[in-house]
Design a protein around this nucleic acid. Sequence first.
DNA 1: GACCTGCTGATTTTT
DNA 2: TCAGCAGGTC
Length: 751
Amino acid sequence: MDNEKILQGLNPAQLEAVKSLNGPVLIIAGAGSGKTKALTHRIANLIAHNVPPHNILALTFTNKAAKEMKERIAGLIGQDKAKFLWAGTFHSIFSRILRIEADKIGFNSNFSIYDTDDSTSLLRKIIANFANQSRKISVNPIRSKISGLKNQMITTKEFATKAMVADDKIVADIYRLYEFELQKSNAMDFDDLLLNMIVLLRSSKEVLHKYQNAFKYILVDEYQDTNKAQYIAVKLLASAHQNICVVGDDAQSIYRWRGADISNILEFNKDYPYSKVIRLEQNYRSTKNILKAAHGVIRNNKNQLPKKLWTENDTGELIDVLQCADEKEEAFRLSTLVQKELQKGRKLNEIVILYRTNAQSLALENSLRTHNLPYIIVGGISFYKRKEIKDVIAYITLLVNPYDNEAFTRSINEPPRGFGQTSLRHLKDYADSKGLALINACKEVDKIPEIRGKAAAAATVFAAMVNEYTNKIKEGLSANLISSYLEESGVLDMYNEIASEDSYDRLENIKQLLIDLESYIQDNPQADLTEYLQQISLVSDVDEKNLDGNNLTLMTLHTAKGLEFPVVFIAGMENGLFPLIRDRIELEEEEEERRLFYVGVTRAKEKLYLTYALRRAKFGEISSQKPSKFLREIPSDVLQTALSTGRTNSEFTGRPTQNRINYNARQERRENYSQIPPDYDESQLPPEEHQGNMSITNSPLQPGDKVHHSNFGRGIILKIEGFGQQKKATVRFDSVGTKSLMMQFAKLQRI
DNA sequence: GACCTGCTGATTTTT
DNA sequence: TCAGCAGGTC
């Protein structure tokens, strides 16, 4: 063991963290303060002090963080030892344990993991069947309410007794039915993975002691983002040995809205009275100016632990604030600035553009493409959430967990087999009355008089096919086998037959999944499908994306946490957008928005640009915007501002990308596309008067002009009113009569 | 049961 | 705007 290597290159605070091996330790680690270094060296040091790696549990929030940690520890102590560490996300480690102990909590070890979409679709069905139909119940609020209850560890029974108002009573009923369906399907949602771990630990003294002794040393990363269930689970595990080390930064807590409880970190000292507190306050990442800005912002929050970051880095450049006329100009100027950074010798992968909401990426993408700037988007819809991938996964899931009724419902009529909603309802009634899984009810379809003919035949054939492949994979798993299963099911043909670009992409995505499966099998010869499915159900987009390529990166501020870039742009610095406000903003929400801004600012190593627009299209409406209040919180001596040129650019009215997935086939195509030389030339900008939708003709449309509209066909303009983007046209169409249209969206063509 | 059309509503999202 | 549903029609 190379002891010196472990203690080398650490500052005094880091060194103390690395050397404090026993008892509770709280490390307050400011942004860019070498937190991962302290954590990984500490783990290496534990092993150097003869703690067996398999007695160490390191919990993170993302796979990416876990992977980085494992790699760095392997670099310090060697892969042969590092591989025995229990390092991973809360969800992946807990589901590993839950599979081992499944029978103790009434599950089968092949349980399915339902992601948010699966939960939503299950809830939607429950709501649709719900007796109380007096008014419309929307799914999303119900789902987040139930998730919130689970995060607070409130059971269906507890909530049912607490529920006083009518709304809560409805939620209580839906919650109960939802849990019942999950149970029947042998499935857990994300929240259950945490909750059931607690149920397991509380199920018997033996189990609790087993895992307390298995994990003699526990480390938790990003502790400020733990919710109640995570907090309790960790507390249960750590209570015997009290060797718990948590790392976090209350200033970077940005997940309150999904149950993260900042008091877990603020009150660590109360939970573990003899804990040692170590502060990592030297920042190695950012310039003095950037830190000054970050500090100026975060000091406006009341609820926080005392600390102040400092750095020995250079003062660095000033922070640029740019005012833009609208989101198109913002995107345009951003692209130009990116090009300037490239001319200065920056590489694309050193640059990131951050925004508050995913919707903002559209305008940015259009502009980046016209400027020939290749980019990748992290976030948005993940590969595994694509319809075709979810369909294929549903088919595969059925082979492993036949009880999974969601997987069955998803696949039975995809492609259409003549087994629709009505047949499904009859099947479900029968299955429920007999206590059967849907797929098993299919085998008795002859006993269901309501299902006859084509539907009955479809059910029988489907069940037989699933049965056949279930047996086949028991003899040996291969991607080829899964491929012929999908072939036989008709999913592949379904996309083959539709000769569209879209279905081509979908097929390519399925192929990509099969390639992925193949390489998984090769890397893990002993692994089974359950493990594969678990792994893909617990990965996120950030884990998959390679941020080192020759692309610049676009992502939301949330996704950016834990990352750093030499050049950071934050777009949309406007009140209402950032801080994001729906109706009324509470102080706590505003403080969370401010922490989010703090996270964004501290991603930057050398250069930070902040942009805002005076007008912005929201849901197709134009609204005037005011600069974000956060901008005023930045000390003015680190800022330099530039006002709008007042120009908008008609180049950017083009169609947004059809789909924001930059994965495999689609990504390649997009990269090719962005290699088309830019045809934009500032001197050739059309005069202001002609901008907007009028790139087709050279003079503005006027009353009396005959026009063509893509939906309504031929028409004649009766009236034009408003200016610029507010411009409206009243048009009498041959087909649909008179309509009033926003000209910037209507794309009227003169005929 | 499949397909088309019109309406509605829309944050952030580690897993 | 635009996606994702519900509800109507064939």
